[in-house]
Amino acid sequence: MKNQYRVHAALFLVTLIYAGTYSLAKDLMPIYMKPFGIVTLRVLGASLFFAVAKQLAAPHDKIRGRADNLRAVLCGLIGIGMNQLLFFSGLNYTSPISASLLQTISPIVVVLASAVLLSEKITVPRLLGIGVGAAGAATLILSRPAQAALYPHATLGNVCILLNATFFGLYLVLVAPLMRKYHPFTVLGRIFLVGALLVVPFGWREALATDYAHFPPKIWAELFYMVFFLTILAYLLNNWALKYASPALLGVYIYLQPVLAVLIAVALGKDVFTWDKAGQAALIFVGVWLVSKKPKAGDPAPAGVLEAQD
């Protein structure tokens, strides 16, 4: 029973960390830091942490074989590098609520990727869910935000977030075999190193050009939040919780993330929740629910379908 409480606490904390990111990042971008500069610090910090953790926890564990090494490189490129560059770029242009709602389509991408890469069967409910979720995402991307003056490039931002969610969905399918075969720190250390090699050329100038001397304490705290809580702590807690949590429980926290993100954004005055957003959210939620429904016996759900977190 105690372990069950720990799992709930870990999943809720991870969900809260992700939900808060959409609003807190708005304080950093673009006044104090540019998106790629934040990503550079975030990925470099996590890469260093997981490299040290790997040496302490699993010094002799090593990714072996050409296929596994190529898979790890691909996971680092799309799951860390491209995923994070697109996320912070998109969040810089669009509203926190739009970004948080679009992020929830990752399970739909997992189902599609599993069908292509793992030959998983797409059932009729899942096919319907893909269509409904896609309709919700499309209307959200093309809609004019309530705060149009604040987000003149919202459509571009929404497209970036959609691509970010797509890459993360693919990453979940690709990384699952590595996580089952090797120590988590071995995998995370490798993929963050690869991600850093992609991110640094894009963001080192922005990171170095930042005027850190004029950061107020609040901005330093939020930057620390992005590097430690959002990257390191969230990955650690998520990987631990996924060992014990049921798919149904994971599904609850997928739906909880945008709800918390909306509450935080509205409470902090970063965004407003409108009726059209409610309708778009309903379409996306129904689509995710349909693709996440447990298939009939003999047709297992694709790995990671309910593990989508940023």
Rank of each mutant, 00 (worst) to 15 (best):
N3S: 13
L11K: 10
F12C: 06
A19M: 06
K26T: 09
I31T: 15
Y32H: 15
K34G: 13
F36T: 14
V43P: 01
L44S: 13
F49A: 13
K54R: 14
K54V: 00
H60T: 11
D61H: 08
N69C: 12
R71N: 12
C75W: 02
I78G: 02
Q84P: 04
N92E: 11
L102P: 06
P107N: 10
V110W: 02
L112F: 07
A113V: 11
A115Q: 09
I122Y: 01
R126G: 05
A135F: 10
A137N: 03
A138I: 13
L140F: 07
I141Q: 08
I141W: 06
A149F: 00
G157S: 08
C160H: 12
L162F: 15
A165E: 01
F167I: 00
G169V: 06
L174H: 08
V175N: 09
A176I: 02
L178H: 10
R180E: 09
K181R: 15
V187L: 00
A196D: 06
L197E: 03
L198R: 05
A209Q: 11
T210E: 03
D211C: 00
P216S: 05
K218C: 02
I219L: 06
E222W: 12
M226E: 15
T231P: 01
I232W: 05
Y235S: 12
L236K: 08
W240H: 13
W240D: 11
L250M: 14
Q257C: 05
P258E: 03
V259I: 15
A265V: 04
A267N: 04
K270Y: 09
D271N: 10
F273T: 00
T274M: 10
W275T: 15
A278D: 03
W289S: 10
S292D: 07
K293A: 15
D299F: 12
P300Y: 12
P302H: 07
G304F: 02
L306E: 07
